[in-house]
Nucleic acid binder design. Structure first.
Lengths: 235, 235
DNA sequence: CAACTCGTCTTGTATATACAAGGAAATTAT
DNA sequence: ATAATTTCCTTGTATATACAAGACGAGTTG
């Protein structure tokens, strides 16, 4: 058997959608209808429908049927990778400079972002990530000490903060925002920017099962760093 | 039955991974082992393994077994949504201003990005998307005329270019880059920016099965627009 | 000693069957 | 006429079974 039956059924359905024969929210054949049309068992027809549902192409509802998913909210995805991996993948030299490792009292916005009491102690680190000795990104991170006691004792030359935290408080959720900002003077110094230039800023908050782990601000010069995304609509 | 058996098995596997009991690339129990451990049929054990594989938690290999996937390339994802939908979702008023609709001869960089001959005709549109009458994003788009003949005849007040193209040349692939830039003077005028401010620029190239469809440049003021991403590590 | 075969374990595909549960429409009872 | 019930079609879960196909090691053969 060259092409599995469930794959043939998937193709059949996708062709009908791509040709426009079946529009958004149209009903597609039920498991039983496919069973008799293709002379397969219900489980095989079902597999085709389930896999297309997992892929976001169809939606199913018990008792009602299976429908072509609406593409309205079709959104494209961008990846945010670990900066150290990215640099190494370019065959460049990666290094980092640790500027700050301290325990501070949380002012209101930090406390709120970390979900802790205002004025309680939190850890703060500032690290510059370099590509071929040139600053590429500044990482300012606030960490909830309850979830990473030994944070300040780590040597982040060998393991990035993100890697360390992933190991010690397994991530369950992350939220990001990306924006374009003008760096302040301190940031310009950290990034070695003589002429002001726009920077890409990523704010990342990460959760583990026990609560908010950390709150990071990643700033990179617009001329040296960009985010990439690649999206294929699986056939 | 409150919690389905296949879901219980999934939880069992995930707990072992999250607790660190099973490390990256470790082998997990085979279908047959789970079958006897949980007193279920092989198909039920199989379902748990397959769903975790689809979710990227496990990898499977015929003849070898099932393994904990490596999180090395763990990357976070950001969404780029349709701007019109986003504005409407905020309960704001959406409108757009069409500045340019023309057919031009492609200079080299445009021709290359679209995969057409240099100096051949391509369509170009420039549209400003407004939120509550304030410019939010400038969309400059170059379109391959072979794949969207009637592009210039469209009324983009009712249907955004992205929606039109999605309908006429179903997307198979898209690539994005995001960067922080300083807008030039023309862009400042389009965006109504009196004081220069950094902008977020998204470059999007889209493919259909017949080739490259279009090449778009989306520019938004850093103070008014940001990209958001939400990632949950499914339990 | 190398190459081959065979048996066994693994995942992959496919079927037939059974019952559960949700939704909607037709039927029945009030 | 309205409300409750039944009935049917849908998807959801679960099992037992069969054979195919890839990987790998043990043993056999040259």
């Amino acid at each position: 058997m060259s092409v599995p039956k469930f794959a043939q059924i998937k193709e059949f359905i996708l062709e009908n959608i791509q040709s426009g024969e079946w529009q958004e929210n149209d009903r597609v054949p039920s498991e039983n209808e496919l069973t008799s049309q293709f002379q397969v068992s219900r489980m095989t027809a079902r597999r085709a429908l389930c896999e297309l549902t997992d892929a976001g192409i169809l939606t199913r509802s018990q008792g009602q049927g299976t429908f072509v998913a609406s593409f309205k909210s079709q959104s494209s995805l961008l990846e945010i990778k670990n900066i150290a991996d990215e640099v190494k993948a370019r065959n460049s030299d990666y290094s980092c400079t640790i500027l700050v490792m301290e325990s501070i009292r949380a002012i209101a916005p930090i406390a709120i972002a970390l979900g802790v009491e205002v004025d309680s102690h939190v850890y703060r680190s500032v690290i510059v990530h370099n590509e071929n000795e040139q600053p590429l990104q500044v990482e300012e991170r606030f960490v909830n000490p309850a979830l990473a006691k030994d944070y300040l004792q780590q040597d982040f030359h060998s393991l990035t903060p993100h890697e360390y935290l992933s190991l010690n408080a397994p991530l369950t959720e992350a939220r990001h925002t990306v924006e374009a900002i003008m760096p302040n003077q301190e940031m310009c110094e950290w990034l070695n920017l003589y002429n002001e230039e726009p920077c890409l800023q990523v704010i990342r908050r990460t959760w583990s099962s026990q609560g908010i782990v950390s709150f990071a601000r990643l700033v990179s010069p617009g001329s040296k760093y960009r985010l990439g995304g690649h999206l294929t609509f699986k056939k």
